[in-house]
């Protein structure tokens, strides 16, 4: 199978290029894209990419495969290959460090900006804070985010304003804490999001939903935040 991989080494290349590699896949199997990258790397160790858990929970290997973002480790080649060719590029919209490795600094910065930790200053006593299963269920579809950046880097609004628009991932996390009945900082959190960029740059095109490898729905979470901001203003 023909694989076209994005290559760039800042020390030796003046500009990035696509490298075509012929890879022979094990017969009768449908390997994951990560397996293919590993096969290439066994032959050419200069290819760099991130990987860790290889089962879709650590979020290391977000890449762009034939035009769509996803995790290389849980994307079968057959699912993305088109006309016999697999094209692997780094996640779009972030600076490339090398080959498929992008600088995720601005993505993490937006995550930190939403204060991604529980804020509750009331004494908890010697045991856990109670939470009903119904209240806990409000966190489903939110806490599972693995910070792979597939969503935010598929979002044009994030491409244009990565410093100002929190992006789908960060907003999903923001809502995870807004929705948590144990959190007491709702007002501060909302006040910090009430500007024309942070939340409202979402135009609802739902690229984030289409690419999320965990099947989460950031657009819906953003809608909830907008509702909360509206009811706070009125």
């Amino acid at each position: 199978m023909l694989v076209s991989v994005y290559r760039y080494n800042p020390e030796t290349d003046s500009e990035p290029y696509m490298q075509d590699v012929e890879v022979s896949l094990p017969e009768g199997k449908d390997p994951m894209v990560l397996d293919v990258l590993n096969l290439i790397k066994e032959k050419d160790q200069s290819l760099s990419y991130r990987r860790s858990c290889r089962e879709g929970v650590c979020g290391s290997d977000g890449v762009n495969m034939n035009g769509k973002n996803g995790l290389a480790c849980i994307t079968p080649v057959s699912e993305v290959v088109s006309r016999g060719k697999l094209v692997v590029r780094p996640l779009p919209g972030l600076p490339v460090v090398r080959d498929l490795v992008v600088d995720m600094g601005v993505f993490y910065k937006q995550y930190q900006r939403i204060k991604p930790y529980l804020q509750n200053s009331s004494p908890a006593g010697g045991r856990e804070r109670l939470q009903s299963p119904e209240d806990r269920a409000k966190l489903d579809g939110l806490y599972e985010c693995i910070l792979c950046a597939c969503c935010s880097t598929s979002c044009p609004s994030f491409w244009w304003n990565p410093e100002k628009f929190v992006g789908p991932s960060g907003l999903l996390q923001a809502y995870r804490f807004l929705a948590d009945t144990r959190d007491e900082a709702t007002e501060e959190r909302l006040a910090d999001l009430d500007d024309p960029f942070s939340v409202f740059r979402c135009r609802g095109i739902m690229n984030c939903v289409s690419v999320c490898p965990k099947g989460l729905n950031p657009t819906k979470a953003i809608g909830h935040i907008r509702d909360m901001l509206l009811s706070r203003a009125t």
């Binding site: 529980l118 856990e128 109670l130 939470q131 009903s132 299963p133 209240d135 806990r136 966190l139 806490y143």
Partner: peptide, 14 residues
């Protein structure tokens, strides 16, 4: 739990 770990819950909230 106090740091925010989203544990699953029993009906009584524990």
């Amino acid at each position: 739990e106090h740091m925010g770990l989203p544990f699953s819950r029993f009906e009584n909230g524990r």
